[in-house]
């Protein structure tokens, strides 16, 4: 579904990704693990086109997308839940959801009801301003908003950031259920090992802008590997 070959990207003269190659097969969830500043969020932004691609290729469903504008990539089937959630603070929850619907031409208005059925907590908050929600509620809204756009590949950037540890497992189950219900492929950037272990089929370790190693999720149970690459025990 998504094939990245030798992707180079960064912020102006600062090169952050120095040749990332990665594949996300249809229906799979790939988790990216790495320390802060290694290029995890930069990778997602470059895939979405929020940062220019300075080299390499990105193919989505076999088509090259690295030269497309972000909105064109989203319309091709990418969805994005950013770090920090980026809810529109003065729009209501209903307007945040509707924004995602009208942002893509041809959106089905019934899609909002379909998504709300997966997020019953949001139905009582529909008229509240996005900026007035708690961190957990904003995370749910960010997820719901991305799903309103009916993406086929969801890019999730640190969804547990700022979320109470007690509800991380609930989020794993929620996103897992959404994957099954919507047939989603997921590329997940996360530092929470339990979260990645609960969701990802495969894990890629990123270090200084390159993918060092890819392995199946089960290897995250190997403390030696975790210690070697992540610097912390599971």
């Amino acid at each position: 579904m998504l094939e990245i070959n030798d992707l180079v990207a960064g912020y102006g003269r600062i090169r952050v990704l120095g040749g990332v190659s990665l594949t996300v097969p249809e229906g799979a969830c790939v988790g990216i693990l790495g320390h802060n500043g290694m290029g995890k969020s930069t990778l997602l932004k470059a895939i979405l086109g929020l940062l220019p691609c300075e080299g390499g290729q990105i193919r989505f469903d076999g088509k090259a997308i690295e030269r497309l504008a972000p909105h064109a990539r989203v319309r091709a089937g990418l969805g994005y839940v950013p770090q920090g959630r980026m809810i529109f603070p003065s729009l209501s929850v209903r307007e945040n959801l509707r924004f995602a619907l009208v942002a893509k031409p041809g959106g089905d208005p019934a899609r909002i009801e379909t998504v709300l059925a997966d997020f019953p907590e949001l139905t009582r908050l529909l008229d509240r301003a996005g900026g007035a929600l708690s961190g957990g509620e904003q995370q749910l809204l960010a997820l719901a908003r991305a799903l309103v756009g009916a993406p086929r590949l969801l890019l999730l950037d640190e969804p547990t950031e700022g979320i109470q540890p007690s509800i991380v497992q609930a989020m794993v189950e929620r996103i897992g259920a959404l994957r099954r219900a919507h047939g989603l492929s997921v590329l997940l950037v996360e530092q929470n090992l339990d979260f990645i272990r609960g969701l990802a089929d495969r894990v890629a370790l990123i270090h200084r802008g390159r993918i060092l190693r890819e392995f199946p999720r089960e290897q995250l149970d190997d403390p030696a590997l975790v210690e070697e690459f992540i610097g912390t025990t599971a």
Binding site: L50, S90, A100, R145
Partner: peptide
């Protein structure tokens, strides 16, 4: 309010 997020939603 947030042009980057707007484009990330397809605008």
């Amino acid at each position: 309010q947030n042009p980057e997020m707007a484009s990330a939603l397809g605008v």
